[in-house]
Amino acid sequence: MMIENIGTFSAPTLIVIILIFAIKSKINIFDSFIKGAKEGLECMLSILPAIIALITAVTMFKFSGTLEIIIKLLNPIFSFLKFPKECIPLLIMKPISGSGSNAILSSIFESYGPDSYVGKLSSIISGSSEAIFYIVSTYCGAIKFKETKNIIFFALISFITSVLFALFIC
């Protein structure tokens, strides 16, 4: 119970701390808020096309029965670990794309509800890491850093470890 409450308290507490800092530093609080909120709006607009592309793809994937086939193929490995088969698509998409995994996450929430076991596990997996391949391609691409094999390998092992950990604590 206690631990769950920390999560619920974190957001309002963070707001109060930020506002105390802001009042002390005598900046124009409301102007800053409006400026930031505008950036947030622009950010939402900029991800809209990607979200439309990916959610449509995920829906088509689901309705055509392709997802079922993939889950059936991979199920033996995951049922051995007692990993719920509903989360398998998220596990595959998470390292590749943030928007793509958000698309899968929302379809999981829609089918099983965010407070179910599957919903909670998916939330934890989805919120606890960034898209590995995306980070490697932006950051290493920017400086033409070639030695990416190691980092992808290390990152995928870390990702699998963190998923097993999530399975254990969830």
Binding site: A22, S32, F33, K35, G36, A37, G40, C43
Partner: peptide
């Protein structure tokens, strides 16, 4: 985003 701008 607005809140975090205040933080910044």
């Amino acid at each position: 985003s607005g809140m975090m701008k205040i933080a910044q």
